[in-house]
Design a protein around this nucleic acid. Structure first.
Length: 887
RNA sequence: GGGUUCUUAGCUCAGCUGGUUUAGAGCAUCUGCCUUACAAGCAGAGGGUCGUAGGUUCGAAUCCUACAGGACCCACCA
């Protein structure tokens, strides 16, 4: 029976995923005998499709959760999706439009029915896709931010915030998305530099022929001007005090006011004031008691109040207003101009500042513990550089606008009375009670109350995610929340540090007096190999499922991880996946070799003693390194360490050391040790490559081993004092042996000597014991037929120098009858001599410096002295060699 | 405009509070091999005066200053 030389992921992936599910290995429940390790998934949007960002993010979470599970912790990864209010609503609107249904024409209830249908149909897709990746989530705990329990919790929090005075309703200047027809929070606006025009427009004074010129990029808002403002110190405009001007294209007269807010050196030094459409103008308007004229509708068209161009889109109106002003002879000039324009994070529409009544959360008080506990590392940010970003935001945070003029979302639990006042309550029944009390009108009926039409910002609810997935708002004392909260780590992109992370921390301290997670692991952005963002337009965003089907889930997972340090962008290239797939294949073939072995009881069980001891030491060394990397969330480095251990130390070195000749049997001890090593490697690799490791585990596991590698115990390092020292000796010895092998192979390469042709080795050393230990290994790996010790340099031999134990340079010779080119040999030695002399002189320079010897630590000086004597010994050996060759 | 951060081999990055050889890794490159675990492989090799200029120090990729270039965050003067 031969097994294919190519590993086939398709044959294993669904099989083992199903098996894990059937065995319930992903499921978790509170267990007082185990330490909890919990992760809540950053819930993807219900409308979302799996993209490379999700792939990276969820692979890291899966690695962490699988490792914790193997370490014997009660590992719980809670999956779920986010209703994503504005994004989903936008998609549903488009979907309805395609069916010929306009949102305006249907009722709220009808719309929501369509939205829920959509959610049922598409909402689970992304989670199904995660299963293909191998994500070991506890699917029985799948949550959705708008399911009943979570919605109730959100309402409860709103009411509680309101009672505590953190929430208020007020008329403010907010960011308006004319596409989504809703208010946005400040951080939902993205500013981008945009090419625009700066229009210089003349306003005529009422009492003279004089005009004054203002500059604006939004001429359509001229129709909403209610003043002209100049700096009181500006001599050019002193005479305008108390005068009036006529708004162009209208006969409206507005005053010229004075305020130091206006800078004299920008534009013309005259500012048109439009309190309805600019935050700063709004504040000027309040200060100077100016009227407000809102010239735009909720969809960004000119309103009745504009007087002209009613119903035109603001950008069309902009051109028409400009043209009309030009026609009226009031346009002075038009310049090209670059300005920052705000775009809606979700719909990409140009955001308009707009005055409206909205709900806000006061942030000042809430922010305090959330800021403090990040700065003092109570919540650890990895990498910590994001603390600065977090801090600057938290210190300058404004009140948070939480109401959205949408239907898909958590409806605001405020109820209006006929007289216009309102009450806030968790249920309509409660609201009625409160309303009766407040209005002193016992005859109020449910029909008299009208619930607020708006819904809440998505982040108002997703900020509660780490609490609500464990039902910690409604039942603060339940077993789950007490056991799993705070969660162990949050893995997410830094782009949602304010939207989400900050808010989770805020809610955490408000409702549990405790952080929501111990650590935050920030992933970078996934970009293409040219550092461009992944986008549909560029076509540089690979389909994750296709990648998985081509390279296998394990291949894609490791491929991504090969190059993804925390906080750094991942420059994705399919070559990485290829590397991952090749790695899986390498493991597969090592497995084929080991599996093919047959034991012969009569063989010498001690033949590979040194190789086994060496690899064990090497494994422990790698394990210590891996643990260190994991403790610092250096997942890529951990993988690379295991990759090198597997490929170089295990496959290239250890297996070559111990493997018997073709179709020859193996001794029992070596076979057992190798199986054991292989299984340990499968364990280390399992978090990264769950499928192939499970497949192999199943084929080589012993009866006494755990049934699945997913629940196998994570290897424990032997880190005792004596043991570690022993390890280092073995590792150094092995390194030396491999160094000799490599030198001989190099020799073969340069002299074109076939690997099959055996060679002899002569060693000139005072430490023959250490060479004797590795005798068998050197013979086998370098095809050496005899190893002897000598005091003399033999005739016609190639030579090289090895730093054996304690750094002592020993000279090794390979006799090559007639194959030696003396000149070449001499120039090689001269080159090395030159380098060593250069090195020696740099060391001597240091040592001859009295200040260095006096002020450097003893250890450093001792090290330099040793370097010096080593180099001198090496030079002596080289020179002796050289003179014997020259003779 | 304010702030953070980065610049080390062709590419992506390690290099922690300055001192174990005259700087490491992975990938890529080059040379030779279809050697019965693996050509998705094996063996070997080459490649960097650590952005520039100063400074501190016995000693600087590592600390300080300036400059150049890049990234990001915040603010948003019409």
């Amino acid at each position: 029976m031969s097994i294919s030389t190519k590993y086939d992921p398709k044959a294993t992936e669904s099989k083992w995923y199903k098996h894990w599910m059937d065995q319930g290995y992903f499921q978790s429940k509170p267990n007082p005998d185990k330490a909890p390790y919990s992760i809540v998934i950053p819930p993807p949007n219900v409308t979302g499709m799996l993209h490379m960002g999700h792939m990276l993010n969820n692979t890291i979470q899966d690695i962490l959760i699988r490792k914790a599970r193997m370490e014997g912790k009660e590992a719980c990864w809670v999956p779920g999706t986010d209703h994503a209010s504005i994004a989903t609503e936008a998609k549903v609107v488009v979907m309805l439009k395609e069916k010929g249904i306009a949102k305006e024409d249907i009722s709220r209830e009808e719309f929501l029915r369509h939205a829920w249908e959509w959610k049922e149909k598409y909402g689970g897709i992304i989670l199904e896709q995660l299963k293909k990746l191998g994500a070991s989530c506890d699917w029985s705990r799948t949550r959705f931010t708008m399911e009943e329990a979570l919605s109730e919790s959100v309402t409860k929090v709103f009411v509680d915030f309101y009672k505590k005075g953190y929430i208020y309703r007020g008329k403010r200047m907010i960011n308006w998305d004319p596409e989504g027809k809703t208010a946005l929070a400040d951080d939902e606006v993205i500013y981008r530099e945009t090419n625009a025009k700066l229009y210089y427009v003349n306003y005529k004074l009422t009492d003279s022929d004089e005009s004054i010129t203002i500059a604006t990029v939004r001429p359509e808002t001229i129709l909403g001007d209610t003043a002209i403002c100049v700096n009181p110190k500006d001599k050019r405009y002193k005479h305008l005090k108390g005068k009036k001007v006529v708004v162009p294209l209208t006969d409206r007269e507005i005053p010229v006011i004075q305020d130091s807010y206006v800078s004299m050196d920008f534009g013309t030094g005259c500012l048109k004031v439009t309190p309805a459409h600019d935050l700063n103008d709004y504040q000027l308007g309040i200060k100077h008691k100016l009227p407000t004229i809102d010239v735009l509708t909720d969809s960004g068209k000119m309103s009745e109040a504009a007087g002209i161009f009613i119903g035109e889109d603001r950008f069309v109106a902009r051109k028409k207003v400009a043209a009309a002003i030009e026609a009226a002879g009031q346009m002075v000039k038009i310049e090209d101009y670059k300005t920052n324009v705000g775009y809606s994070e979700r719909t990409n529409a140009v955001v308009e500042p707009r005055l409206s009544v909205q709900w806000f959360v006061k942030m000042e008080h809430l922010v305090k513990p959330a800021l403090k506990n990040v700065l003092n590392d109570e919540v650890r940010f990895n990498p910590p550089k994001f603390k600065n970003m977090y801090r600057s935001w938290m210190e300058n945070v404004h009140d948070w606008c939480i109401s959205r003029q949408l239907w898909w979302g958590h409806r605001i639990p405020a109820y209006y009375l006929p007289d216009g006042s309102f009450v806030v309550a968790e249920t309509p029944e409660e609201a009625l009670k409160l309303a009766k009390k407040a209005s002193k009108n016992k005859d109020l009926t449910p029909d008299d109350l009208r619930q607020d039409e708006d819904v809440l910002d998505t982040w108002f609810s997703s900020g509660l995610w780490p609490i609500t997935v464990f039902d910690g708002i409604r039942n603060p004392e339940n077993e789950d929340i007490r056991y799993y909260y705070p969660t162990s780590v949050l893995v997410t992109g830094f782009d949602i540090i304010f939207f989400w992370i900050a808010r989770m921390i805020i809610y955490g301290y408000e409702y549990r007096q405790e952080k929501p997670f111990e650590d935050v692991y920030f992933t970078g952005m996934v970009r293409d190999s040219q550092r461009r963002k992944m986008s549909k337009q560029l076509g540089n965003s690979p389909d994750p499922l296709e990648l998985i089907s081509t390279y296998g889930a394990d291949g894609v997972r490791t491929g991504m991880l090969f190059s993804a340090p925390a906080g750094n962008d991942l420059l994705f290239d399919v070559k990485l996946c290829e590397q991952g797939r090749n790695f899986a294949n390498k493991i597969w073939n090592a497995f084929r070799l080991v599996k093919s072995w047959e034991i012969d009881e009569s063989l010498d069980n001690n033949r590979n003693q040194v190789a086994i001891a060496w690899f064990e030491a090497r494994f422990n060394q790698a394990l210590i390194e891996v643990e260190d990397h994991f403790s610092k969330y250096r997942i890529s480095d951990a993988l690379l360490t295991i990759y090198n251990l597997t490929w170089d130390a295990f496959c290239s070195s250890y297996l070559e050391m111990v493997k018997p000749d073709y179709q020859q049997p193996i001794d029992k001890v070596t076979c057992k040790a190798t199986h054991s090593f292989f299984k340990c490697i499968m364990k280390l690799l399992h978090p990264f490559m769950p499928f192939i490791t499970e497949e192999i585990w199943q084929q080589i596991r012993h009866e006494k081993d755990e049934e699945c590698v997913i629940v196998a115990a994570w290897p424990k390092g032997d880190t005792e004092e004596g043991r570690t020292k022993m390890d280092m000796e073995l590792i150094q010895g092995g390194t030396m042996a491999l160094d000799i092998v490599s030198n001989i192979r190099n020799l073969r390469n340069s002299k074109q000597i076939a690997d099959k042709q055996p060679l002899s080795l002569l060693i000139k050393t005072d430490f023959s014991r250490i060479y004797q230990l590795y005798d068998g290994i050197i013979r086998k790996l370098a095809n050496i037929e005899s190893i002897e010790f000598t005091d003399e340099k033999p005739e016609g031999a190639a030579s090289f120098i090895i730093n054996a134990m304690q750094g002592r340079p020993d000279e090794l010779f390979v006799p090559l009858k007639g194959a030696i080119d003396i000149d070449e040999e001499i120039s090689k030695i001269r080159k090395e001599l030159e380098y060593t002399k250069g090195f020696l002189s740099s060391v001597e320079k240091k040592l001859s410096n009295q200040k260095f010897v006096n002020s450097a630590p003893e250890q450093v000086v001792a090290m330099e002295r040793k370097k010096k004597s080593d180099a001198e010994a090496k030079i002596a050996a080289l020179e002796e060699n050289l003179s014997s060759l020259s003779n």
